[in-house]
Simulated scan of single mutants.
Amino acid sequence: MAAVRKSTNWFAIGVTAAVLVVVLIVAGVVWFANSQATSPGTLPESSAVNTETGAIAVGSGDKTVDTYIDFMCPVCNQFEQAYGPTLDQLVASDEITLNIHPISILDRASQGTEYSTRSASAAYCVAVDDAANVPAFVKALYAQQPSENTAGLDDATLASVAASVGASDAATSCISDGTYTRFVTAMTQNTPVQPGSGGIATPTIAVNGTVLSNQTDLTGDPQKDIVDRLNG
């Protein structure tokens, strides 16, 4: 008996190939969208900025204090008033490197203007322009800190504050362009979890890499909370 000759179903093969192409295109689009969502965007190129952690380094001491701050956070402002002078003194005496991490967790409290992200981005603009102006910029923002659930300072005001502490026109353009907003979002994810809380909060303070608890380790006494830990 002669064998039955099978014909090739080119239509089915064509449909399968077309479906495969569509699947590959969709997968590529999803991958690109996800990569864009998680990408840090433009990196702040400055010797003072660690682009892996987001830290803006102030000083050059061997010991470290890291502060994770949101410029709309009232408790961050309270921390600055209570602990800032001591940290400034430790930086001036070359005892510590102060690593400032501007982060964004309170955008929800600025009526849709994303003030936390914009102000943190502005801090990086100042750092790239001249990192020596960052401490003064931080203090100036706290001096004009908007209340939660208000719109916050607009970009023109942020630029004016930057100019008032010595930043150049380049920083003004950087602020108005929101150059580092995506970087802020990415670096916020690096904020260490508060001990015993299960989540991130501001301010978050780490002394020589050890994260402190806002509830039990920050008593309002800089000598006890910071200096003694540095020397312990």
Rank of each mutant, 00 (worst) to 15 (best):
Q89H: 04
P135W: 08
V91Y: 03
P102V: 13
V128H: 02
D88E: 11
N99E: 15
P85A: 01
H101I: 11
S104K: 05
N133G: 02
H101G: 04
A82Q: 15
Q111A: 08
I96R: 06
T113C: 10
A109C: 13
V91I: 11
A109Q: 15
Y83S: 03
E95I: 07
E95T: 13
Y115W: 12
Q89V: 00
A127N: 07
I103E: 13
E95K: 10
D88N: 11
A123Y: 05
Y124A: 05
S121R: 03
S110T: 06
V91L: 07
R108H: 15
T86N: 07
A109G: 09
D94Y: 13
P85W: 03
D130H: 08
Q89A: 14
V126M: 00
S121M: 06
G84N: 01
C125H: 01
G112N: 02
R108F: 12
A132T: 14
L90R: 05
S116W: 10
V134R: 02
S121A: 11
E95S: 13
D88T: 11
A109L: 15
A92R: 06
T113P: 12
R108G: 15
L98I: 09
G84E: 00
Y124P: 12
Y115H: 11
L90W: 08
Y83C: 01
G112F: 08
A131Q: 14
A132D: 13
P102A: 10
D130G: 08
T97L: 03
D88W: 00
S93V: 03
P85M: 01
I96N: 11
C125M: 05
D94H: 13
A122M: 04
A131S: 15
L87G: 01
D88Y: 00
V128S: 04
S110V: 05
T113L: 11
I96A: 12
A132W: 06
Q89K: 10
A123I: 07
D107R: 02
S119N: 13
D129Y: 08
A132P: 07
S116N: 11
S116A: 15
A122Q: 07
I105S: 08
E114N: 15
A109W: 10
I103M: 08
P135G: 06
V91M: 03
H101V: 06
Q111N: 13
H101D: 05
Y124K: 05
L98W: 15
I103Y: 10
T86Q: 06
L106N: 07
S119K: 12
V126A: 02
S104H: 01
D94T: 12
A123D: 11
P85Y: 00
P102E: 09
R118M: 14
S93Q: 12
T113Y: 09
T113R: 10
S93T: 14
I100H: 10
